[in-house]
């Protein structure tokens, strides 16, 4: 299990490749992967950049707890969470979540759980820079259909 916070541009596929290289070949049959990327629009406005603030120490701890929880609920062989901090531009990856398991169902379900739990609990905050020069803090959106989260 790994948690990686990056202040430089995140390279999700390299991270996943590198992590998978440390696993025993043939020991897993599925890897589910989610990558979240910054949009250049939000709430009807053009967004030119975004700054991700976090709570050093707590953020890593919370992500590790989420990974532990996934492990108790599904037969997860290994997992990886990578997240950007600092200034991000449209098109750049913000988050990567990968789960390795023997079979696809646990991999899909645990990957979905990790992503939804991260959005609900991990201490990150986004501030957008809009095209007109304004800066605004992003409000949390209602949770999507999330069997694991607290719901909308």
């Amino acid at each position: 299990m790994a948690v990686v916070l990056h202040s430089e541009p995140l390279e999700p596929f390299n991270l996943v490749n590198e992590h998978e290289g440390g696993l025993s070949p043939g020991s897993f049959g599925a890897c589910a992967l989610f990558v979240g990327t910054m949009r250049d629009f939000n709430d009807g406005d053009a967004v030119t950049a975004m700054t991700l603030e976090h709570y050093p120490g707590m953020t890593e701890r919370e992500l590790a707890l989420i990974e532990d929880e996934a492990r108790t609920r599904w037969p997860v062989q290994d997992s990886l969470i990578g997240h950007r901090v600092g200034r991000v531009e449209p098109g750049q990856p913000i988050v990567v979540v990968a789960v390795w398991s023997a079979h696809r169902q646990a991999a899909f379900d645990a990957c979905r759980f990790l992503m939804e739990a991260l959005k609900e609990r991990a201490t990150f905050w986004k501030q957008e820079e809009l095209q007109d020069g304004r800066r605004r803090w992003v409000s949390p959106s209602p949770q999507p259909l999330s069997p694991e989260g607290r719901g909308a």
Partner: peptide
């Protein structure tokens, strides 16, 4: 002790 607004990561 920390105080903060709702989180918006991911």
């Amino acid at each position: 002790v920390a105080f903060f607004p709702p989180v918006t990561g991911g």
